[in-house]
Design a protein around this nucleic acid. Structure first.
Lengths: 122, 122
DNA sequence: TTTATTAATCGTTTTTCGACGATGTACGAT
DNA sequence: ATCGTACATCGTCGAAAAACGATTAATAAA
């Protein structure tokens, strides 16, 4: 009834929907916990996640699914189990937005300037 | 029934709950849109937000409330209307997490290293 | 004082989430 | 072939989120 095409879409990717989806995927303590876990144990992790996050296996599986769907993590199958790892690149859009908030770069520049990474050479 | 105190709380602030709450507040297209709007029009904005975001006034008001509750924006009353602005500091925890994902700093260091801001002096 | 403007709040309805147990699947081991 | 392990998927249920219209509050302007 009130659905417009997508107003305010920035230069490259990063629609509001994209950004929101990304943030939403991080919008749960359990999922933040999983991300933290994957930061610590650099390498991937299997079912230990279920151990760490105090929730039922099916619930954790669901959270992993959500993170995977958002592209934040990847799951490599190593049969009987699955090895999860972070996919940092997926979070660049969010980083962009935050940079913009802090006054650096533009609100829609997909710049990877996290630190000492001068995009746009020179 | 399955409620532990808060496992995995990092050094300073930033519990998983805190981070999640922050991300959650950003987890909606309309709210991302509002943040973008506030980035562009540096200065604060009044009811124009309702104009930009194509949603009912009451709905937008609710989104503003959520962002305010998360500390992401502030609303200064300028009677008949209200002037909203971003509160960048509130997003530092998220920035921290992202930095950690990208391999910089620790997962729990509330460091403001967005760019050329060497925390921990060289 | 009346009217217009701008927001917040309330009540309702619909949709989406989160969590769980149970069940299913796909191996590797025995 | 049977069993055990590691996950994914399904169905359910209660809780929370999203969206609206209507109402109310608080002024500024007329």
């Amino acid at each position: 009834m009130k659905k417009q095409p997508k107003i305010r879409v920035p230069s490259i990717g990063q629609t509001d929907d994209d950004l929101a989806a990304l943030a939403k995927a991080l919008g749960h303590p359990a999922r933040i916990g999983i991300v933290r876990l994957l930061i610590e144990k650099q390498s991937c992790i299997g079912c230990d996640i279920v151990q760490e996050i105090q929730l039922a296996q099916s619930t954790v599986s669901e959270h992993l699914r959500i993170l995977k769907a958002a592209g934040i993590i990847t799951g490599e199958i190593e049969r009987p189990r699955v090895c999860y790892s972070l996919n940092p690149a997926s979070l660049l859009p969010l980083t962009s937005l935050l940079n913009a908030v802090f006054g650096h770069g533009a609100a829609d520049a997909p710049l990877p300037l996290i630190r000492g990474a001068s995009n746009r050479a020179r």
